[in-house]
């Protein structure tokens, strides 16, 4: 990420965001910022609040308190901002099983405001980039989990969002696809898209992220830059947090 981008106004600002879910505090007092072109890795053990955080950022879930700003505008007041600004790949990439891959792309494009030639161009570019051509006529219900992830990713990227929200994007992908995914994330970041991705695989973070945030029981326990050669330090910090919380 360039220095100019790092000082650009943030695409995303979370201020003291909290959310209860299933009778417990899933996310508590979470504050984060993300600049254009930055890649933030959200780390945490299962149940740490990663998916809840991402669902709130994507606009699928409303926080109980706190503020979310997208490009400086109040996202909670204007949920329609999500339409153009955010691309979201939820965990397990849900699909409409009776629709084909091509129909999914069309439907997502239209929902995001693309029409006519713009939609065709965006679909072709996304299909080519994610190598979905052989799958276009397949029903989404017959795809493997890895293929569904790719379709979900294509739907998230179709409208060229300013913020890409990826929940466990490498789930069910083979090593070749994981490598392709990393390249794609770096490509998106280089083009100025801010990316926030959740994972519990540490190597994923050191491979593609500029910054890392570690969540535990809904709280932000660590936030800082990531250095590709610093995998061991990140691993140590992650286990410290997990163990401290367990001891407490």
């Amino acid at each position: 990420m360039t220095a100019a981008r790092a000082t650009a106004p943030p695409v995303l600002q979370l201020d003291q965001v909290a959310r209860r879910r299933a009778g417990r505090e899933a996310v508590q007092g979470l504050s984060l910022t993300l600049a254009p072109g930055q890649v933030l890795g959200l780390l945490g053990v299962n149940g740490a609040g990663k998916s809840t955080t991402l669902a709130m950022i994507a606009g699928a879930l409303r926080p109980d308190s706190g503020a979310i700003r997208l490009n400086g505008e109040d996202f909670l007041e204007q949920p329609e901002l999500a339409r153009h600004l955010i691309g979201w790949l939820p965990e397990r990439a849900p699909v409409w099983p009776e629709l084909t891959v091509a129909e999914h792309l069309d439907a997502h494009g239209r929902l995001r405001g693309l029409r006519g030639a713009g939609l065709c161009a965006a679909r072709e570019a996304t299909v080519a980039r994610l190598e979905l051509q052989p799958l276009l006529r397949r029903l989404a219900g017959t795809l493997s989990q890895g293929q569904r992830q790719r379709l979900g990713l294509a739907c998230a990227l179709l409208h060229r969002p300013a913020l890409l929200v990826l929940d466990e994007p490498a789930n069910a992908l083979d090593p070749v696809q994981v490598d392709a995914l990393r390249k794609l994330i770096r490509e998106q970041a280089a083009a100025g898209t801010a990316v926030i991705l959740s994972t519990h695989v540490l190597v994923e973070v050191t491979a593609v992220c500029d910054r890392v945030a570690i969540l535990h029981e809904g709280r932000l326990c660590h936030e800082g830059p990531v250095h590709a050669d610093d995998h061991a330090a990140l691993e140590r910090r992650f286990f410290e947090i997990a163990m401290q919380a367990r001891a407490a």
């Binding site: 329609e80 999500a82 955010i86 939820p90 849900p94 929902l111």
Partner: peptide, 14 residues
């Protein structure tokens, strides 16, 4: 059931 309802919300559809 499909889990696609959040996708519609996230697309800004009221």
């Amino acid at each position: 059931r499909n889990g696609t309802l959040p996708l519609l919300f996230a697309a800004g559809v009221p």
